[in-house]
């Protein structure tokens, strides 16, 4: 169980981690400045297992992987949003940062709510309000990457062609 940190619509990668901090690829260093301009208290107070609750088009803007890495480095458990910008979606999956699509849960969860997320089933529980939501299922090949903990880990064990085998 963790605390919800809510963010608005079209949260862009410059707001997640401004360009001036992208001179390192160290997740913990990046995490020190994550959301520094939109929610400076986040980096100071986030606890392992907390959950990011974003608005639609979360992660729009640049291709910088520093953005999902900074969030992962902050030890947030996952992101819940109604929709993601396409590069951010790929990047998060590829680096093993769990992301869930669930507009209903986003509408229901307030800043500071206690939230429990089952990453295996995609069930999201708003413990504060006692409501339960089901995130949209991800395509099979995306789940293969997510289950391996990212594309790099997947490729250590498999050929890339295996991604598409039996994929929907």
């Amino acid at each position: 169980m963790g605390k919800a940190w809510t963010f608005g619509e079209n949260m862009n990668t410059d707001e997640i981690i401004p360009g001036r901090f992208n001179i390192t690829i160290d997740p913990l260093e990046l995490a020190k400045n994550v959301f520094c301009e939109v929610k400076p208290e986040y980096a100071k107070n986030v606890q392992p297992g907390d959950v990011i609750v974003g608005g639609q088009n979360f992660g729009c803007g640049s291709s910088r992987e520093h953005a999902p890495i900074a969030i992962k480095g902050s030890q947030a458990k996952c992101i819940i949003a109604p929709s993601y910008a396409r590069i951010f979606f790929r990047n998060a999956i590829n680096i093993g940062l769990p992301i869930l699509e669930c507009p209903e849960a986003v509408a229901d969860i307030d800043e500071g709510s206690e939230v429990d997320v089952n990453l295996t089933t995609g069930q999201i529980t708003n413990v504060t309000k006692g409501s339960i939501y089901q995130a949209r299922a991800l395509p099979d090949f995306v789940l293969k990457i997510a289950d391996a903990g990212g594309i790099v880990n997947f490729l250590k064990e498999h050929d890339i062609e295996e991604l598409m085998q039996n994929a929907e």
Binding site: G61, S62, S63, P68, I87, N91, N94, I95, G150, I151
Partner: peptide, 27 residues
């Protein structure tokens, strides 16, 4: 493919250009 969001630029010449993250570039 380019590890830069403005890789879309290449579409001006009828090519498919798209931005991706660094990990996919390494892949």
């Amino acid at each position: 493919i380019g590890a830069d969001s403005h890789s879309n630029t290449y579409g001006a010449l009828g090519a498919f250009g798209a931005g991706l993250g660094s990990t996919e570039i390494g892949v």
